[in-house]
Amino acid sequence: MTMDGKQQGELPIISESDIVACRKVIRTLSTNAGFGITDVTRIVTAVSELARNIYVHAECGKMRWNIMHQPGKIGIELIFEDNGQGIADIEQAMQPGFSTVKSMGMGLPGVKRLMDEMRIDSIAGAGSTVTIKKWARAR
């Protein structure tokens, strides 16, 4: 359960300071959900990567979050949506070292390793949606 019992919400990603806000909210949420410090760091790092991707590659976007309850486990689902150019070749984007903006190119493949589930939906010219999930045993 989250602090105020809220199970879902969303945050805009327009400026660089929104990345900080996303990280802060998700750090609190995942800690309250019962994730350990290492998993919290993993989740927050993934949030940082994907939120920064939106800030760098698209004009604006948002992060939606969901706390998921299943028998014996609790999970967090994060959906990053933007209105950017879309990802031309998802397979290529998932290759370590591939970047269109001279960055490390480790972000997307890194996020996949940090999280339990990851899905990318992208339509050329109409934006991208990246969905990630992480599970923990229920307290």
Binding site: I37, T38, R42, G110, L114
Partner: peptide, 13 residues
């Protein structure tokens, strides 16, 4: 910190 070390490895840095 240990948590940071693990994420850095996951990120492949």
């Amino acid at each position: 910190r240990p948590a940071i070390a693990q994420t850095l490895v996951h990120l492949g840095i």
